[in-house]
Every structure is written in C-alpha cells, then in structure tokens.
Design a binder for these strands. Structure first.
Length: 152
DNA sequence: GCCAACGTTGGC
DNA sequence: GCCAACGTTGGC
C-alpha cells in the first residue's frame, strides 16, 4: 500500500466538504507529474493525508482519506464552464485524469505546516522541500504514521 | 497583496 | 533544443 499527501484549498474544497459528501472525484489536476501518479502509482485502498493549502486560518494536514477508484478521465477538462477546461484535450485520448477519494477521518488537531517544518522527524517530507508545488505527492509510511499520530 | 519558485508555451 | 515570457501555486 502506498501513502500520499493531497492538497486542496479549503475555500474551494475542504475536508468538511469531503466528510459531508463521503466520496468525491479529485478533479481539476492539470499537472503531468500528478496525472502520471494517478495513472501509474495509485491503487484503490491507498491512504492519503488531506492537506489544506492556502488556508486563511490553519495551513496544514487535517485528516485522512482513502483512494477509492482507479484513475479515469477528468470530465471537467471537456466542460467549458469548469474552472480548468482544456480545449486541446481529446475525447478519445483525454489528457487529464482523476481518482475518487473517500473520507476516512478528521485529525483531532490539525498538524500545521509551521510545526512540520520544525520537526526533524519529518526531514525529507516532499511537502517541505523548497519550491515543491505538487498538489499530490507520495510520502513514506513512517511520515504518514507520524503525522497521523501527531494529529490524534 | 506580494513574491519566489516552478511549469508551460511558443518563437526562433 | 533553447530560452524568454507568461501563468500558477501557495506561503506569508
């Protein structure tokens, strides 16, 4: 099983939103590296940390979700009214993929980015690498479990 | 709102 | 293939 960290802006889609709907297509990703991870590396049952980016209050890890589907074409790429339409994507060979995610749990306490930066146990966490802008990234089991423990 | 860092695009 | 210009991400 693999472990992931996935970012979302809470103003756009928060962990509370995910809790309400239980399961959601993780759409809108327009980055080839992430597309390839969806396609080649994610598997149903993998665990992911839900991370609130660009949050007004608390930027950090807020809970856990499960990967609930294989990768499939992101329908929003073909919708001119969506936030990220891609007119160059081909219906027969879609450029962008997504996976469904399912809610698992809220952390009791958010694990803030500022705390994670100071924690030597999280050295090497890709989230903390300078200039890392990936919205989805693999993390080690050790880091995953450590963050979960910290949030509980 | 600012800005550093990065990815993508497109001209050549 | 190079690289400048531009757009986006995301912390602060």
């Amino acid at each position: 099983m693999k472990y992931w960290l996935m970012k979302s802006e809470p103003d756009c889609f928060s962990i509370d939103d995910l809790k309400r709907v239980k399961r959601e297509p993780w759409d809108g990703v327009r980055n080839y590296q992430v597309r390839n991870m969806f396609r080649d590396e994610m598997a149903v049952g993998d665990k992911a940390i839900f991370y609130h980016s660009n949050a007004k209050k608390e930027t950090g890890a807020v809970g856990v979700m499960t990967i609930a589907s294989k990768a499939y074409p992101d329908p929003t790429q073909f919708d001119p009214k969506s936030d990220h339409p891609d007119p160059k994507s081909d219906l027969d060979n879609p450029r962008w993929l997504l996976v469904d995610v399912a809610y698992e749990s809220h952390f009791k306490y958010p694990v803030l980015l500022s705390e994670m930066r100071l924690d030597p146990k999280l050295d090497g966490l890709p989230l903390l690498a300078k200039g890392n802008r990936l919205s989805v990234m693999p993390i080690s089991k050790k880091h995953f479990e450590y963050i979960c423990k910290h949030g509980s």
